[in-house]
């Protein structure tokens, strides 16, 4: 590995150095340097169109799916260049799971939804092992008690909050190291949101979590680190408490106190 000026190498799981994203002519993300610590919840906040989702989608290379997107700079996961030509994007995405804004369970049974990832990656040697992974993931996602009697029913028949926890179970079934969450609660009601937030806090024990959110209360509640983006630039990053109580940059302060956004 080249000598990258990583501030705290031992402490960063994902690290970005001078990352730029272009959608065609549009410069969507500008010169972002950001370190994400393991077993932390890192919240990305900022007004709409500020580049926070774009940055999130760089980490598991979801931007590859967009035809005219171009990523430059260095982005590493455990020191490995994510955009290296030798990296298999399929394996990368097995290490970096993702939960989306709108719950998107597959039109399959609840069991098959969770078993999908382990199956395509050949993670289970036999049915018993697969059962174990599925049950364990549903358990960790706090969904097992609600669905254990109807694992064969279709996942799209669950309520919105249950669907989103099913998607989280589906993501952790692959045993990723990092879980990316793109506004995971924006389509949920307050009670379902509270459950998912509680879950995020529990998941921190085993996973590194990066969450994009529009709700500053949510960022304050669930995250340890917060990064504030504005117009494609990373304005400020720091411990959540410090960002919310003592922001260094006037833009951050303006956003947090609700003067714009």
């Amino acid at each position: 590995m080249n000598a990258i000026p990583v501030t705290q190498p031992s402490l960063s799981k994902v690290s970005a150095r001078d990352v730029n994203v272009y959608y065609g002519q549009k410069h969507a993300l500008k010169h972002v340097d950001l370190d994400i610590r393991p077993n932390d919840v890192t919240a990305l906040i900022g007004p709409s169109g500020c580049g926070k989702s774009t940055f999130l989608r760089c980490i598991n290379r979801m931007n590859d799916l967009i035809d005219n997107a171009q990523v430059t700079g260095l982005l590493t996961l455990d020191g490995d260049d994510v955009y290296d030509r030798n990296i298999d994007v399929v394996q990368l995405r097995a290490r970096v799971g993702m939960v989306f804004q709108k719950p998107n369970p597959f039109p399959k049974s609840i069991y098959d939804n969770v078993a999908y990832g382990p199956r395509i990656h050949g993670m289970a040697r036999d049915q018993a092992e697969l059962d174990e992974i599925v049950m364990g993931s549903l358990e960790k996602a706090g969904l097992l008690a609600e669905v254990k009697d109807r694992l064969e029913e279709t996942g799209t028949g669950l309520s919105g909050g249950q669907q989103q926890r099913l998607c989280i179970a589906r993501a952790i079934a692959v045993a990723p190291e990092v879980i990316l969450m793109d506004e995971p609660c924006s389509a949920l009601d307050p009670i379902a949101t509270a459950k998912v937030e509680e879950l995020i806090d529990e998941l921190r024990e085993n996973f590194t979590i990066v969450i994009v959110t529009h709700s500053m209360q949510q960022a304050a509640r669930v995250s340890q680190r917060t990064a504030f983006f504005h117009l494609g630039e990373l304005v400020e990053v720091g411990d959540t408490e410090q960002i919310f109580t003592n922001p260094q940059h006037p833009l951050t302060q303006g956003y947090i106190t609700g003067r714009f956004g």
């Binding site: 399929v90 995405r93 799971g97 993702m98 989306f100 998107n104 597959f106 395509i120 589906r170 993501a171």
Partner: peptide, 9 residues
């Protein structure tokens, strides 16, 4: 995206 996000080809 859900499938790609899980590492499906």
């Amino acid at each position: 995206e859900g499938a790609y996000g899980l590492g499906a080809t």
